[in-house]
């Protein structure tokens, strides 16, 4: 079947005409803020209360753009006759965003959920040296981190919740007193719910664990 001569030309004209009648996709950025998806890689926020200065992020960073200073403190024994504990105290946490390539490895490797992606992107500076942002600035960006999107319907439940429920069920079978059946979703620390509300206080660092 030979196409009618010129039908391709007409088709092209139709495409452009149809596009003209459609809504444009232009973002009027400075006038209206863009509607960014929740996982936008805008900037990295630090939830410093969760940070244990384990240095994993700084070591994994391909660009070496994370600077961490810390010192050790000894915590007196909680119980008389107990042993003194030592813990790390964060002195400085800075990310040089002129080096950062937004790979997100630091966020992936953080074992204590102290680093988060924030969709905030308006942090341009006039001097490249000002792009090294310190912990207070990084902490401020924490407020802009949105709640993670809901899981897909039928998705596997998060590992932490599954583990918690398993232990709860095990407890329930070993101690057969049917109370209100402690269902999951109680563990506060294991839920990756980003703290959009300020945390209740400086949570005890992991150093207390036996």
């Amino acid at each position: 079947m030979a196409p009618i001569p010129g039908s391709g030309l007409a088709k092209g004209l139709a495409v452009t005409l149809r596009t003209m009648t459609k809504k444009t996709v232009t973002e009027q950025y400075p006038d209206t803020q863009p509607d960014l998806p929740p996982r936008t890689r805008g900037v990295i926020g630090l939830f410093e209360e969760n940070c244990t200065v384990c240095m994993l992020c700084a070591r994994e960073c391909p660009d070496w753009c994370i600077y961490i200073d810390s010192h050790k403190e000894t915590v007196p024994a909680a119980t008389p006759g107990g042993r003194e504990r030592s813990r790390n105290v964060l002195d400085r946490f800075a990310i040089d965003f002129s080096l950062c390539m937004y790979c997100g490895i630091c966020i992936e490797v953080c074992p204590f959920d102290a680093l988060f992606w924030s969709p905030e992107f308006e942090y341009a500076e006039t001097d490249i040296r000002d792009l090294t942002h310190e912990r207070d600035k990084l902490r401020e960006w924490m407020w802009t981190v949105p709640a993670p999107p809901a899981l897909d319907p039928g998705a596997e439940e998060p590992k932490e919740i599954a583990a918690a429920r398993k232990t709860a069920e095990k407890l329930a079978t070993t101690q057969p007193q049917p109370t209100t059946q402690p269902q999951p979703t109680d563990p506060t620390g294991s839920n990756p719910e980003p703290p959009t509300e300020p945390p209740a206080g400086p949570t005890a660092p992991e150093g207390d664990a036996p």
Partner: peptide, 13 residues
């Protein structure tokens, strides 16, 4: 303007 809208843009604003 026409070219912009045919390309899904807004053109000069």
């Amino acid at each position: 303007k026409v070219m912009a809208h045919m390309q899904g843009r807004l053109g000069p604003m």
